[in-house]
Write a protein that binds this DNA or RNA. Structure first.
Lengths: 330, 330
DNA sequence: TTGTATGCGTTATCAG
DNA sequence: CTGATAACGCATACAA
């Protein structure tokens, strides 16, 4: 059985297709009674408009493309949650285009694949300023950056400098030596994220302002093994009691493990401040920085929606701040 | 500047739109020379066909929807890689629709959103047999299940029973006591995955066949903290030397950590067999089961493509087997 | 307030 | 082998 079309609905409701289209799109100018009739016909037939036809006729497909790095991290799940919630409320569908690698990015941007045919585009995390200024993206459809900052398009970003500063200000009040573990950034220019540099600069700035210095810094790539190695190295040479700022909860968790193995008491011998507030952080009593990731996604979606609604103003930037959550470990 | 249409191409090439459409779709009946002219015009204009118009006119949009659980796991990255590769080779676009929670699933299946309007549908992991038999999915468009088994639609699945059996057969040859750590399954019926039950049944079956038994079993949810707790509990009561089958590398990694902290030598005092072959497994010398995930995705894509190509046969099931990789830890 | 006609970009049909 | 032209399902300008 064929899917019902707007024609079927019109026929059944005894009205013209124009009227059906109007109630579909809330074009106010429809009498209450006929509106009801149409709505009933729609319900009876279980009719849903064909988005392809909509797109081709009206220029809108009610679809948003999200270019998302496929990083197996809680962060992106939460970001997606915020984005999806907002778009769903506005009755937009969102399709994810996973950026598995650089070649995929090129393909999505270069060719005019489906990603490119949506009403709007959300790009997450990458530093695409160069591409944007070449207007390989700009010209085509409304775009918003999320978890990234730019001056030439709307964006919603996390202020990691402030996050680092909050950690630094708090750490400066604690007794004993100060240490830090940073996450190494990646190599590829395009795929580089500067969040860790930013956390570092905020942290060091706060320490400086408080007249304190780091006794030593360590570095680890973002994986469990490297995290553990860094924890071992740090504790082997650490002067206790001490405070450690681990710029990601993954690092903090490994440090907690290692401390426990050495019979050290977190929050006493070793104070630990993490960053991310992972789901397990509360259970382990980890003092850390919570990021309003969902809100950032939600707001990014609304920036885009306002553009789709016709907003024409200059690029807007929305800043989000991490929040220090003090628990047992520091 | 407007996107070029098939009209623009036709005009520039000095041919009719019908001819352009023919070269676009490889409708053979085009003379070599005109074909070249058209191709050149397409390249000059950087023309790409509008999938929406394609869909509405010819019933095909060359777009595939993938319904994917948003789980922060290497597994899905690899799966996506396999799927994307195959579809790209066939010149299909793929859009991912993230299944953040059950309500989203309902929405994608129930309403006729874009996800539902693609030429084909790939559903990953969930046990959708019920939904499928209600033909809430079946009727609409060609569908393939990946990382899930069903008899009423095409599917490509991982044989976790065999994986467990391979682990069991190998473990049975090792000296000392035998232990295992399993992953707890989730609560929601629909979102439940049976992979861990399957690994368990395969493992226990192999042990039974070899006349050996487990001295104790442990359970952990799928997170770092639970993994560590399980490792601690196990080693606290373990009789050494022993062999432990950890039904996920995450668990195996935690066990390795804990063993090291206690000064035990993996592969000697404690033999460890993991499951997944995570990226770090080789570096840590973890004996584990490797799953051909990319191949599974690739094959699933081809099952769907054959349907799109007109294949009408009965549902096909493709089985994939994990492979035991013996390294240092066991 | 509502119906009708036209156009959107493409494929398919049918002459030529 | 190729060029018109009619659909496809919908939105919208225009007329009533």
């Amino acid at each position: 059985m064929r899917k019902p079309t707007i024609q079927d609905v019109a026929r059944r409701a005894g009205v013209g297709v124009g009227t059906v289209s109007r109630v579909l799109n809330n074009h106010t100018a429809v009498k209450g009674a006929t509106r009801e009739t149409v709505l009933k016909a729609i319900a009876d037939l279980d009719y849903t408009p064909n988005p392809h036809a909509r797109r081709i006729a009206g220029g809108k497909s009610y679809t948003i493309s999200v270019l998302l790095p496929v990083v197996t991290t809680e962060f992106y799940v939460r970001l997606l949650d915020g984005l999806e919630t907002a778009f769903q409320e506005a009755r937009y569908d969102v399709a994810i285009f996973p950026l598995l690698d650089r070649s995929r990015l090129e393909r999505y941007l270069g060719s005019h694949t489906l990603a490119y045919q949506a009403d709007g585009l959300v790009m997450a995390t990458y530093n695409l300023t160069a591409l944007l200024s070449e207007r390989r993206v700009r010209a085509q459809q409304p775009t918003v950056l999320v978890d990234a900052f730019a001056t030439n398009v709307d964006c919603a970003y996390m202020d990691n400098v402030t996050g680092g500063r909050l950690a630094g200000e708090y750490a400066a009040t604690l007794p004993g030596e100060l240490y830090a573990i940073w996450v190494e950034t990646e190599l590829d220019q395009l795929f580089t994220t500067r969040v860790f540099e930013e956390r570092r600069s905020g942290f060091l700035g706060a320490l400086g302002a408080a007249g304190r210095t780091l006794r030593a810094e360590f570095t680890a790539s973002f994986d469990a093994l490297a995290a553990r190695n860094a924890a071992v190295t740090l504790l082997d040479g650490a002067q206790l009691p001490c405070t450690v700022f681990a710029s990601a909860d993954l690092l903090a968790g490994a440090l907690l493990d290692e401390a426990r193995l050495r019979g050290l008491t977190p929050g006493q011998d070793v104070r630990v401040i993490g960053f991310d507030d992972q789901p397990w952080a509360a259970a382990r009593g980890l003092t850390t920085l919570h990021q309003p990731v969902e809100q950032m996604g939600y707001e990014a979606a609304h920036l885009l929606l306002s553009r789709l609604g016709g907003f024409r103003g200059p690029p807007r930037a929305r800043r989000f701040e991490p929040r220090l959550i003090v628990r047992d470990t520091a």
